[in-house]
């Protein structure tokens, strides 16, 4: 019989048969699951950081002032008083005009107010409840509201409520930072588990190929060659598993981001209870989060490759 052409150019010909020693399924699926978890954690951390940044940057400079019976004149004002012709809300707005230069004062329109209340009251425009005026005050960068602003306003217009968003923003920022720390810990844990899984798979592969490795070693194979062959296999499997896990995580991530989008607004005017359209969603996703997700399969491959290199080289040290 005429022998077949030889050599076959695209087949590894060192007898290690790593596709049998390190089978695809277990390592691939486990890394996919780890990457899925890592993608969710990474997104949670990015979301918490985005919200923290917005609250710190935008919301901290905001004051929200509520004026009850806004369109009523101030009770007890004499006809000679210049405020007699003004409504309670107008008097408060006039007081706010004395705040430092650069301060923006905006009284929410009925439509803006109705939109904010819709999630809680339904069609707020038809409610019989008396609604207060809501005045949004955005202080200029580096300026703070006067400490006695609430007393001053109350002295002129009794019942005026001033909400300092800065207090809430610092608490929310602390919460977001805690969440980010937890996410970082979770990512380190996931990385640690991935490392252990790879190490165990490599050890199993080494023990099933012990004889073959000893032959290669005797023929003059370097540690780099043997470690490289194993590392290429685990690195490739981890890359594939990482890609699959990250892609599978995209569906719940997009859903979560769509749900979280209304909470990311930094001003009351920008806030909307409506969720963004699916088609516009990719534009809303933070760039650094997308970069992190894209890097996940590479990180998985790096962990797999490095762990295997170290494991195999340590194992080979038993032989001279």
């Amino acid at each position: 019989m005429e022998p077949k052409p030889w050599p076959f150019p695209f087949r590894p010909k060192d007898g290690l048969s790593l596709s049998e020693a390190l089978p695809d399924r277990s390592l691939f699926i486990l890394v996919a699951m780890m990457s899925f978890l890592a993608a969710l954690t990474l997104t949670g951390a990015t979301g918490a950081r985005t919200l923290s940044t917005r609250w710190a940057g935008g919301a901290a400079q905001l004051l929200t002032i509520q004026v009850s019976e806004p369109d009523q004149p101030l009770s007890g004002a004499s006809k000679s008083d210049k405020t007699a012709s003004q409504s309670r809300a107008e008097i408060v707005q006039a007081d706010l005009a004395t705040l430092p230069a650069g301060t923006q004062v905006h009284r929410l329109t009925q439509e803006e107010l109705a939109r904010l209340l819709t999630p809680w009251l339904g069609d707020a425009g038809k409610t019989a409840l008396p609604l207060p005026a809501v005045i949004e005050v955005r202080l200029a960068e580096g300026h703070e509201a006067p400490a006695d602003l609430e007393q001053t306003l109350n002295a002129h217009v009794p019942g005026t409520v001033v909400e300092h968003n800065a207090e809430w923003s610092s608490r929310l920022r602390a919460l977001a930072e805690s969440l980010m720390a937890c996410a970082a810990l979770a990512l380190v844990t996931v990385g640690g588990i991935a490392t252990m899984i790879t190490a165990l798979a490599t050890r199993a592969g080494l023990s099933t190929r012990r004889d073959i490795i000893e032959i290669l070693h005797g023929l003059g194979a370097t540690d780099s060659y043997i470690a490289g062959r194993f590392a290429s296999r685990t690195g490739g499997l981890a890359l594939g598993g990482g890609l699959l896990g990250t892609l599978l995580a995209m569906a719940p991530l997009l859903l979560l981001f769509r749900m979280a989008a209304p909470f990311a607004a930094s001003t009351l005017q920008a806030a909307t209870p409506a969720m963004p359209d699916w088609r516009t969603l990719p534009d809303l996703l933070p760039g650094d989060m997308l970069a992190g997700l894209a890097a996940l399969p590479c990180v998985a491959a790096f962990i797999g490759w490095t762990t295997t290199q170290i494991m195999v080289r340590i194992w080979l040290r038993r032989m001279p």
Partner: peptide
């Protein structure tokens, strides 16, 4: 003998050369 059972005769013999 210590041959690689899954490899062909030619691939077995070629191993020392390939490793170099």
């Amino acid at each position: 003998f210590r041959l690689m059972p899954d490899l062909s005769v030619a691939d077995n013999v070629a191993l020392p050369l390939r490793l170099q």
